[in-house]
Design a binder for these strands. Sequence first.
RNA 1: AGAGAGUUGGGUGAGUGGCUGAAACCAACAGUUUGCUAAACUGUCGUACGGGUUAUACUGUACCGGGGGUUCGAAUCCCCCACUCUCUGCCA
Length: 423
Amino acid sequence: MLLVQHIRDHYDQVLAGLNKRNLKNAASALQQVLALDDLRKSSQTQRDQLQAEANTISKEIGILMKEGKTAEATAVRDRSALLKNQIKELEEQHEQAEEELKALLYTLPNVPYAAVPAGKSAEDNEVVLSHGEIPALWDGKLPHWELIKKYDIIDFDLGVKIAGAGFPVYKGKGARLQRALINFFLDQALAAGYVEVQPPILVNEDSGYGTGQLPDKEGQMYFANEDKLYLIPTAEVPITNMYRDVLVNASDLPIKNVGYTPCFRREAGSWGAHVRGLNRLHQFDKVEIVQITHPENSYATLEDMSAYVQGLLQKLELPYRVLRLCGGDMGFTSAMTYDMEVYSAAQERWLEVSSVSNFETYQANRLKLRFKGEDKKSLLAHTLNGSALALPRIVASILENNQEPDGIRMPKVLHPYLGFDRI
RNA sequence: AGAGAGUUGGGUGAGUGGCUGAAACCAACAGUUUGCUAAACUGUCGUACGGGUUAUACUGUACCGGGGGUUCGAAUCCCCCACUCUCUGCCA
């Protein structure tokens, strides 16, 4: 969430940023933030003064009692009872202002970075670069949902029987392709200096708030009611929350973690003809990279992470393009996001396979993730993450782009992981 | 799931109503000293939010797992919740 002090100090910039996101009523919301913060401060000042007086009186009573001056002690005691009521009132005012302020701040998205283009929807995203050639396929080409049936490698119907729509069963070479991709992605990340972690895939409410899924998107997460745990929509949640309430040394930065997890998304109400096959699932596999950096380095790191993800796509020989998301299309908590899209040659359209974002201090503020700098003051760190990569659409693209009349070629880098080179 | 014990500052750990924001030890930081990758000594050493200051200084309040209560006054007493550990049960 945004820092009130930052809103105060850079009011115009914050307002312009929120407008870039097309946030309604941004100006009035910011005004209200400042008003609530003023109220919070003034009520605290008053309360603290009265409390100080009450504390002094209590000490006096203690001394009088000790000296056996009971009558005097009783007289002073009455005075303190009066103070108590006033303090209670101010306390309530203070708490209410604080709660309202917090609730309001939760509704404000992150301020986009200067380089983020203005725009309202995905159509306004900026294509930063394209790489690779779009394969020309013969007329008999099939979309991946046909290919998986033809070669019997992924079974949606079986998944429906076991769980429901959007829970595919990977079989035979299909299952091995999953495992190969996961291992390939993890190995690549290790080589790039990321430390592997295997986090829980159910998380508590605090973690949901920490990375910003709550209070906004509870409808998108599966919830285990009996134990009040959420199934993670992405490994970003457990991995970033490892650093909740943590004060690290500046010398420990950057922290680089990678983790493979299944991801679960309810995707309530967003199904349609355009999300056939592997394009959208309730459960899928993803390798996620997370970095925690010094604020000065976060944008250089964002570029690094973007280049890293592109390297994966190049090794997989997939044609891709990189988008810089516009203000209107960016996620709630992000300050800048690159989306990587792979061309799926049978569907003849671009599929998002990765999203790399810098959250600046937005998550760190909620997480209370700080580092101790050289001046020994603690500052909020910057958090970043990216998919590296999400499997289903990568699989879809590999299947579609590499199909031949008698089989499907597998990318060379995967051969050692697969133990076969064609499906 | 049942029974019991516990949760204190970066760590270990004392503390059963006022002199405790909290002993002691360790770690860390700064300095002194001994001519040698070390030791000794001294000092500093929590966080958050306010007030105040050009910035410091200074100062107020809160915080001993979380929330509530009793009291003039709570780390300390009472209630609820969460978590951890031990034993039993179950189990990959």
